[in-house]
Nucleic acid binder design. Structure first.
Lengths: 134, 134, 134, 134
DNA sequence: GTGGTCTAGACCACA
DNA sequence: GTGGTCTAGACCACG
């Protein structure tokens, strides 16, 4: 079971932090296809937040295809499905990345500093090595 | 003069789009220290939005040190000043980057694909090469 | 709960008086990390000013890292975080201090008088004694 | 003759920077009673700013008793006149100082750091050593 | 009910 | 004419 954490002092909405946490768990290999997420009620009790917030996070995850739910059984991690073309996902990544780079540049970060930070972050995720066809 | 654009159909608030646009212009070298931004009223007229929205964007930019503004004179691009510690700015960059990487990994992007996209994006910005002296 | 007061006859903008009041409360220890500020609407009603003015003060406080706010929850005092270099914060303090000293000197204050007043004021605030770890 | 400098990138209004500059000159001993300030026109030309801005600064200085002007002759530094009681000037200094200390404390400055910066700044001004009676 | 965004419009300070 | 402050009020996102 994955330890989902939330930090109420961060600007991101709580439900978003949960969504990101699950995606992060999948991307780092801590969560695999078929793994069951805690029930809405249990997680709400554990994190001491409103169950509606958990429910919303699970709804978003399911809408994005990260999880699927079976009535009465719970919410599970879905098998990774590649739905975007490589152009599309590169474009999305680049568009999300650019404001970050602009900020970094304006705060005086050097190219070297950025590359190093990027490389370090990269090492902690699990990327596909070949085309996924399933 | 830079062409600031907004897209009211995007989820980002209008003022945020303006903030990002200016930061991007600075980070890419299209805007340099001392350059004058359009007046609040002119830009409001041009973009057909409320002047307060422009004013808010300019206020945020000033608070972040990207611009400075003077009553009676206008709003100008500030000289780049380093105010954050390198640890702080690296932390911020890393924390903003991680969800992007998680998403990318979940979409099946390979490490190589990510590196290439990152490198390409990097080339379009201007980073500091040495200590910035004011 | 802290008693935030404003004086519309003073030259400082209302939102600035609120910002200063909260910072003062934190620096004196009357407000601690996690404490909740009054809601925008409640405080607006109490002080009989426009809610937007309160919202602006809260926004400034958040931008400076003094508070954090979450929709649906409220505005809270943040844990103190060091983001500026010591050079930067010393420079800011010195630049703000100098005009005060010039005025004091021109009013005929003695060095002794200034030192005593400074020392007395200093005692009422809470300063960091060691590295702040988050 | 004193070198009055202005920095348009600073948030303080230009006329205020001029006022502060003259007060600073007096407090540091670079300007003495009877010294003549540049004419409005000359200074405006030298600093490349609007003569009205200079005129306003001189008006404020005269209103505060720092300078006096003689028709056709120019503006001169006045002899220092103590008009406030020691309680009054201490109160003013303290009230102006407190927000600075609050900010410093919130940015994690230590008491030692503050004292040192204060002491350093103090050394550059000329304070009265005895009661001024003239 | 909480804060956030945006519009509309008045008035002030600065250059 | 420039930006800054404040009011008034609508609508949205979050919990």
């Amino acid at each position: 079971m994955i330890a989902l954490r939330i930090d109420p002092t961060r600007p991101e909405p709580l439900f978003q932090q949960l969504v990101d946490g699950v995606k992060d768990g999948v991307a780092r290999g801590r969560l695999a296809a078929g793994d069951r997420l805690p029930s809405v009620r249990d997680l709400a009790k554990e994190l001491v937040i409103n169950p509606n917030t958990i429910a919303k996070a699970y709804r978003v995850l399911e809408a994005e295809g990260v999880t699927y739910s079976r009535r009465g059984a719970g919410t599970f991690i879905a098998r990774r499905r590649v739905v975007m073309t490589s152009e599309e996902r590169e474009r999305r990544f680049r568009e999300a990345l650019e404001p970050l780079l602009a900020d970094a540049a304006n705060q005086g970060m050097s190219e070297q500093e950025l590359r190093r930070t990027f490389d370090e972050a990269l090492q902690r995720f699990r990327f596909s090595h070949e085309v996924i066809d399933e």
